[in-house]
Nucleic acid binder design. Structure first.
Lengths: 141, 141
DNA sequence: GCGATACCCGTGCGGTTGCACGGGTATTTT
DNA sequence: AAAATACCCGTGCAACCGCACGGGTATCGC
């Protein structure tokens, strides 16, 4: 580890920008590393079958408790509980404890574009046409 | 480990649906496991700093070659090449080979809600207000 | 008060993913 | 034609993540 130049193949070897105009444009208006990190972290929370179904279910009905979610999703309580743990930590869902039952609902400051378009529209689209990675578009019984 | 009943903590122990109406509703209109899988797989491609920046840059300018992307992102050619490999496999980007240079651009059938709202709006939001998971909203250059 | 229920939390394991490095191929330049 | 460039592809390593299991705590029924 005595190579002060770079860890591996850096951007070197490309001192000939093929299209300097576009590079400069993308460089100035492109999103920064930290913004990309935040975006990636946020989307990672939706990029999971269990969590996506949880959020979608909570979008349909106002609130649900852990056991009922597991029942509605045919998933284990552990799995749902773990998923909710992450969503809760991220602040995407809020809890309302009544007795020994903990009710979950989407957070009030849940990103609207996420809720409206990323979740609903993409699901609608995936149901309408089975494009993308080549999955078979099975009929929804 | 020969418990034929279940692998672990299944949904058992919760034969008392607290809110049967909502459970049934979420069960019927909820998204299936395969739809959730497709959605998760698609979002996973955006849930990465490098890939998100690549797609965002390609959304700004029409097309770019690999070296120029690495230049605009201050990333290694390897990293960008690897990211493009996944996006290309998923069919989110298309290539146009001219000589020894390979130009990338967003696929024509790139999901519109993804492009318009998931990418742009979320970025705008993250820049405007640093809410959500409690990340510090540092000044953006 | 005591047991049972419903949920939370910490931990270990298996699977997956991202990343860096190697070599290889096609095209352009001299 | 030979060398150099720009990119692709396959592989190994390391880190991360999700999941299952254990135990623990607070609340409700008897």
């Amino acid at each position: 580890m005595d190579e002060p130049t770079d860890g591996g193949h850096s951007a070197a070897g490309h001192d000939h920008p093929v299209d300097p105009t576009r590079v400069a444009h993308a460089r100035s208006r492109g999103l920064s590393a930290e913004d990309a990190g935040w975006l990636a972290g946020t989307l990672s929370l939706l990029a999971d079958p269990v969590r996506a179904r949880i959020l979608y279910a909570l979008d349909l009905v106002e609130e649900l408790c852990v056991g009922d979610i597991a029942l509605a999703l045919d998933a284990t309580v552990d799995s749902v509980g773990y998923g909710l743990r992450l969503l809760r930590t991220a602040g995407l869902v809020t809890t309302r404890k009544q007795g020994r039952v903990v009710y979950y609902r989407l957070a009030a400051d849940f990103p609207e574009p996420l809720r409206d378009h990323c979740l609903r529209r993409l699901v609608t689209m995936s149901r309408a046409t089975g494009d993308g990675d080549g999955h078979d578009s099975n009929l929804s019984e």
